[in-house]
C-alpha cells in the first residue's frame, strides 16, 4: 500500500475522480435541482431556482412536481408496472437460466467450453437486434403464427405483438444471458463430490438441491438477479418495440415527458423518484442476503 499521496500519484487519483464528479455527480445534482423548479414556457423550460428581484433573493423551489406525480395514478401505475415487469422477468430468468447454467457447468470440460462460447455469442451480439428478432417472429404474418395456422391450432393469425406478454418475453430473452453467466461462474467452481456425498448419506435429490447446491450457488443467484432486475426497471427499448398501450412503463414515461411533452421538471422529478424507488428493492435485497449469510456462518 502506498501510504501517502506522492506527486506522481495525484493525477492518477484525481483524473477519474474529477471526471466522475463532473459528468456523473453534477448531472444528478442538476436533475434534482430541476425537479424542484417551476415549469414555464421558454428555453430552458423552467424558472431559475434563485432569482434576484427588488425584494431581494427569491427562491422559486417547489415540491409541486413530486406531488403531481404521486397524486396521479398514471405515474404510480407506470412505476408499479416497471417493478412488476422487473420482478416477473427476474424470476422467469432464474427458473429458465438455472437449469441451463447447472447442466452447462456439469458437462465435461471439452463440451463445457463449446457450450460456454454458445452462451456468450447472444450476450455479445446486439441487444437492439435481438429485440427486433422477436418483433419479426411475433408479426401477424410471422413464423409463429404461420406454424400455428399450419398445424390447425388457429385459423386466423392472432395478434401476439404490442402487449405486455410480448414485453415479458422480450425481456426474458434478452436478459437471460445476464442471469446464466454469473450462475455458471459459481456453479462451475462447485465440487461435484458434494452431491455424491449428500446422496450417499441418504438425502433425496430434492433435499440435496435445497440443502447443498442452492446455498452454495446463492451468490450467483444474487448477482444474476441484480443484473436483470436493475436495468429492466428503467427499460425503454423493449416496451417501445414489443409493447402496446395496455401497460405503460417508467422508462417510456420519462422519455415521453422529456421528448414529447418537453416538461423538464416533471421528467427530472420522475427520474429522481425512479432512483429512490429502485434503491429500496436493492437495499432490501442486500439486507436479506446479509441476514442469510449471517445465519449460515
Amino acid at each position: 500500500m502506498i501510504k501517502n499521496l506522492k506527486k506522481q500519484n495525484v493525477w492518477f487519483v484525481f483524473t477519474p475522480y474529477l471526471w466522475l464528479v463532473l459528468f456523473f455527480f453534477v448531472p444528478l445534482a442538476l436533475i434534482f435541482k430541476i425537479s424542484i423548479s417551476v415549469s414555464e414556457w421558454g428555453m430552458p423550460p423552467y424558472r431559475d431556482l434563485f432569482s434576484l428581484s427588488e425584494n431581494g433573493l427569491k427562491i422559486n423551489s417547489t415540491l409541486g412536481n413530486y406531488l403531481f406525480i404521486f397524486s396521479d395514478p398514471f405515474y404510480i401505475r407506470s412505476y408499479l408496472n416497471s417493478l412488476s415487469l422487473a420482478f416477473t422477468s427476474t424470476v422467469l430468468c432464474l427458473f429458465i437460466g438455472y437449469p441451463i447454467a447447472f447442466y452447462v457447468a456439469k458437462s465435461k470440460p471439452s463440451i463445457r467450453n463449446i457450450l460456454l462460447i454458445m452462451l456468450i455469442i447472444p450476450f455479445w451480439s446486439s441487444f437492439l437486434l435481438r429485440v427486433y428478432a422477436w418483433k419479426v417472429l411475433l408479426q401477424g404474418s410471422g413464423i409463429i403464427n404461420s406454424v400455428l395456422i399450419h398445424i390447425g391450432l388457429i385459423s386466423e393469425p392472432i395478434s401476439m405483438l404490442h402487449n405486455h406478454y410480448a414485453v415479458i418475453l422480450g425481456v426474458v430473452y434478452t436478459y437471460l444471458p445476464f442471469m446464466i453467466l454469473p450462475l455458471y461462474g459459481y456453479l462451475v467452481k462447485f465440487d461435484l463430490n458434494l452431491i455424491d456425498a449428500s446422496n450417499d448419506l441418504g438425502a433425496k435429490p430434492l433435499n440435496t438441491f435445497v440443502k447443498v447446491i442452492l446455498p452454495l450457488s446463492l451468490p450467483g443467484i444474487v448477482a444474476g438477479s441484480m443484473l436483470v432486475f436493475i436495468p429492466v426497471v428503467g427499460e425503454y427499448i423493449i416496451p417501445e418495440m414489443l409493447g402496446g398501450s395496455d401497460k405503460l412503463y417508467f422508462g417510456k414515461i420519462i422519455w415521453d415527458e422529456f421528448f414529447v411533452n418537453r416538461d423538464w421538471p416533471i421528467a427530472s422529478a420522475l427520474a429522481m423518484s425512479g432512483i429512490v424507488i429502485l434503491v429500496f428493492p436493492i437495499i432490501i435485497f442486500q439486507l436479506m442476503y446479509a441476514k442469510y449469510n449471517f445465519r449460515n456462518e
Partner: peptide, 20 residues
C-alpha cells in the same frame, strides 16, 4: 462515484447528461 453508474438506469443517466 465509481460504482453507482453500474446500477443507474440508462434512461436516467441519459436525461441527466443531456440536461447537464
Amino acid at each position: 462515484l465509481s460504482s453507482s453508474p453500474l446500477v443507474m438506469p440508462e434512461i436516467i443517466l441519459g436525461l441527466s447528461l443531456l440536461l447537464f
